[in-house]
Amino acid sequence: MHAQIAGDAREAGLREATREFVERHAIPREDPALAHDVAALDAVTRELRDLARRAGIYAPQLPRELGGLGLDWRQRAGVLEEAGRSFLGAPALNCAPPDQPNMINLLQQGTPAQQARYLMPLVRGEIRSCFAMTEPAPGAGSDPSMLRTVAERAGGGWVLNGHKWFISGAVGAAFAIVLAQTAHGPTLFVVDTAQPGYRLVRNIGSMDGYQVGGHGEIVLEQCAVGADAVLGEIGQGFAYAQARLEPARLSHCMRFIGRASRAMEIAQHHAAQRESFGQRLSELQQVQAMVADAHIDLHACRLMVRDCAQRLDAGLPVKHESAMVKVFVSEAVWRVADRAVQIMGALGVSDDTPVSMIQRELRPFRIYDGASELHRATLARRIFSQQLRP
């Protein structure tokens, strides 16, 4: 009981410290000019990470022996939500994708040499990384079994050939974790981006912003790597990718609950101040209904996230639960941000407040980490095959 009380007190303190950091340091550094400027975003992130270390909130997801806070999943929920209030919060705490899930892969499957060469510089924030799975048609997208990138043995190592795109974090990344097909099945490879045969084609423009490292298109042409580039076991790439996706989805949900909450807070403040037709917007029943529905959605999101986090902490499988959480939260936070825009009118679609960018950020969440339609289909198949109770 005493340990639980102490843990709750620490969680509350870290959450409050994170909120103070975000309000004092991260939000004031936001600027629409940063949204698609990879180099400028990197510079601001480096500055904020130094401040986060001093504030004692750096790397909440990492074990203490690696310099993190050692929080379990339930404890992370509040901290990541507070960090997620700002576009710069999660990068500042070094708990943003794709580096965060890449750390999971390197922690779980990496050899000591790989951890020393890639994981520790990543933990310290000295380098960035990306995860290269998605391919142009007819390659892998929502269906990873369509994987076309291949890795063939050559001498004592491997040669990779393939085409990847929409690879978040690829611009300026020091290394990529690449999913490629081998004779023994899909396999993960750690590939230095300076390796001959690895080429970043472009940064693909997109509707979202503040993505550290952009969204890159990559070509691998006769890219030779050593045998030590294999991450984990040969042929286990799909299993490793799935193992990173379930917690990554949950982390996304935590951060985006914070983002949507901030959008609604801004809209509520606007509604309480703005007068139209002789009364404040906050006195209009239609506006009141939108605010109430937003709070209902956010409350449900938090409860679903917490339940899934507790299952992860207990070592229980969360394939089913994480899919449900991802579908619900991705759609609910979009509804919250959409209501915020509607309440604010023209101001809500402008760059004069962060609300417009928040909505643009939240829209792709219904696609990446598994589209809502894919999750619904797999959920239904699992339900029918096992006749699960509602």
Rank of each mutant, 00 (worst) to 15 (best):
I5N: 15
A12N: 10
G13V: 04
A33C: 02
V44F: 02
T45K: 08
L62T: 00
L66Y: 00
G68E: 00
D72F: 07
R76E: 13
L80M: 13
E81R: 14
A83Y: 01
C95Q: 06
P98E: 04
Q100D: 04
M103S: 10
N105R: 11
Q109M: 06
Q109H: 11
T111I: 04
T111W: 08
A116G: 10
L119R: 00
R124Y: 05
A132M: 08
T134F: 15
E135S: 03
L147Q: 01
E152L: 09
G155M: 02
V159E: 07
V159R: 07
S168N: 00
A173F: 05
A176K: 02
L179F: 10
G185E: 00
G185F: 02
V190M: 01
D192W: 13
Q195E: 11
G197E: 04
R199E: 14
S206Q: 14
Q211A: 03
Q211P: 02
V212S: 07
I218K: 02
L220K: 00
A224K: 07
G226P: 09
A229G: 02
E233F: 06
A243M: 04
L245V: 09
A248H: 12
R249M: 06
H252I: 06
M254W: 06
S261Q: 12
A267G: 06
A267Y: 12
A271T: 09
G278R: 00
G278C: 08
Q279I: 11
R280M: 05
E283D: 13
L284F: 14
L284S: 10
A292K: 10
D293R: 15
H299R: 12
H299A: 12
A300N: 11
R302H: 03
R311A: 15
L312H: 04
V325Y: 07
R335A: 14
G348R: 10
G348E: 08
P354E: 01
R360P: 05
R360M: 12
R363W: 08
F365V: 14
Y368H: 15
A377W: 15
A380W: 08
R381H: 07
Q387D: 14
